[in-house]
């Protein structure tokens, strides 16, 4: 019984705490740039403000435009049912859940892209086009990496794969390679530097931000909340890969490890964004294919 309570808590926690992550990233960037920066809780303030607003819709749009942010948010929230946190089993951990996980994100992406195209704007079309291209390149990397970890851990479920490859795996090195690959996917899927710049001003160069140009009010609140939740969800995946074997550890240590991992990851993203410029759009595929190569190397190590 207690495991179910714990797993349920691991779903409630991200739903409440996810807007902190963009706050931590922004704070890190501000500190590194020598500014004070916005409060860490700014994400919550923005959401509250947006939720209370009315809405302005483009005349071109249809119900699909309104459905996009909802479906995206719900699919990401569904992902929380599948990814374990801190080595405890996820609420719906089962053999093959990693496939459902990837395809749920795919469903969300389908609707975000369709909602962008619903506006009939060239700029949003451009963003949508880039989004499908980059995620198409990221998807095989994700699966190859998970395949390597699955072979290493002998499990077909995310709950068995994550937080378990540590001791035996580190000596082989595959989890390190997969962590590197997944970090690239994490940055790309969450639209961070070096793939995309969430703070950019020019529509022509945006990827993710441009797709939601026409969303406002409560719709944009759903979009922002979804983005924060996605940071948490994919962060959970990455922290779980880059982890020692926590099977024997006490509960407080596992929880603490995962929470600390999320914090360090967010600070890391802030550091990356402060140190790097985004790469040219044409170079992004090379970056993602490089990540794929890391995953393939991991598989080769695992297959021997």
């Amino acid at each position: 019984m207690s495991t179910i309570v714990l797993s349920s808590l691991h779903i409630v926690l991200p739903l409440l705490a996810a807007p902190l992550l963009p706050g931590i990233i922004n704070r890190t960037k501000a500190i590194l740039a020598g500014r004070r920066g916005q409060p860490v809780l700014q994400g919550y303030f923005d959401l509250l403000k947006l939720v209370r607003k009315g809405a302005v819709y483009s005349r071109t749009t249809t119900w699909l435009f309104r459905a996009g942010p909802i479906v995206n948010l719900v699919t990401i929230a569904m992902g929380l049912l599948l990814v374990p946190f801190g080595g405890s089993k996820a609420l719906f951990g089962f053999d093959g859940d990693l496939i459902l996980f990837a395809y749920l994100l795919g469903l969300g992406r389908f609707f975000v892209v369709a909602a962008a195209l619903d506006t009939g704007s060239s700029f949003e079309g451009m963003g949508a086009s880039r989004e499908v291209t980059f995620s198409m390149l990221a998807e095989p990397t994700l699966f190859i990496g998970l395949f390597a970890l699955s072979r290493l851990s002998g499990s077909m479920s995310l709950s068995g794969i994550l937080y378990s490859t540590g001791v035996t795996g580190w000596s082989v090195g595959a989890p390190v390679l997969v962590s590197g690959a997944f970090f690239m996917i994490y940055l790309s899927e969450n639209a961070r530097i070096p793939v995309d710049d969430p703070a950019t001003h020019l529509e022509l160069t945006m990827i993710h931000e441009v797709m939601v140009l026409d969303h406002g009010g409560p719709d944009f609140a759903l979009v922002s909340y979804g983005a924060a939740l996605k940071l948490w969800l994919l962060g959970m995946l990455l922290v779980g890969v880059f982890s020692p074997n926590l099977a024997e550890a006490p509960l407080w240590f596992r929880e603490g490890y995962a929470l600390l991992g999320m914090f360090v990851l967010s600070v890391g993203v802030g550091v990356v964004e402060s140190l790097m410029a985004r790469v040219r759009l044409l170079k992004v595929p090379q970056l993602l294919i490089g990540a794929g190569a890391l995953s393939v190397l991991a598989v080769i190590l695992v297959l021997e």
């Binding site: 009315g54 809405a55 302005v56 819709y57 483009s58 506006t119 704007s121 140009l213 009010g217 409560p218």
Partner: peptide, 15 residues
């Protein structure tokens, strides 16, 4: 959520 709020239509944002 949108009940009782002002919901308007306009053109798509075209920069």
């Amino acid at each position: 959520l949108l009940r009782g709020r002002i919901v308007r239509t306009a053109g798509t944002w075209d920069c």
